[in-house]
Amino acid sequence: MRNILIVARKEIQEGLRNRWVLATTLLLAALALSLTFLGSAPTGNVGVRALDVVIVSLSSLTIFLLPLIALLISHDAIVGEMERGTMLLLLSYPVARWQVLLGKFVGHLSILAFATLLGYGAAAGALAATGEVIDRESWTAFASMIGSSILLGAAFIAVGYLVSALVRERGTAAGIAIGIWLVFVLIYDMALLGLLVVDQGQVLSGGLLNALLLLNPTDAYRLFNLTGSGNVSAFSGMAGVAQTTTLGPSVLLAALAAWALLPLGLAALAFSRREL
């Protein structure tokens, strides 16, 4: 346990030093703040709960940005250290490989969680400062949005590690990471949509659709946040989907957690078999 924390601490130290933490936090805060104030312009001020609108726009932002940031920090974690030669020395120390991997995971996730919390928190804080009345339900929805965003980040960090543990070169890892981002964030949904249109409800049953949605962590995240509370789903235009899908929030969270743990386990396995 102590070894994991030692490695995590060093990872955070490096993140602070090479400005990863600063850059990510600033980026998320800037985008969140601009979405909060510019994005609410079309809805006007009448009868709309401001924070719920923010949740809708921020979760869309998260789907694009957090997986990208997570993959950027994680794809290099193993293969990069091997290529630079620092892994050789680290593994000659009394530390197990899974401890190294888990330590990195804790470190990278802390960086991501810190940036998300601060960046998105700034948006909510700014909204509250302008004198908006925000009720408890909205706050809960906002908090669970941040929590699930971090979980989504964890899933993509784990996927990045798996790639990093399997490939021989950093360039390959970067290429595959971009490919994974494209597939999960853009292509998967388009393909699913195309499939539904072509199928016209003939073969694809509701159960199969649910399974297909769970197979993509960003879809699980989207469903969790946009259908979670009645108000939010109404604004997001997802109310229809929310009624047809039978996936409860706990199933969606479990899917996200599985997306984090499974690749992490596989990455640990692949890393333990690597020779260097």
């Binding site: 030093r17 630079r84 030669g85 620092t86 020395l89 009394p94």
Partner: peptide, 28 residues
């Protein structure tokens, strides 16, 4: 109780010498 010096030793360039050595000391 084992020390190893690899042929081409390399360290993370972002940390200072003291920080680097402190990290390895903690591991041991």
């Amino acid at each position: 109780r084992l020390g190893y010096l690899p042929e081409n030793v390399s360290f993370n360039a972002a940390l200072t010498g003291h920080e680097t050595l402190a990290f390895y000391a903690r591991l041991k």
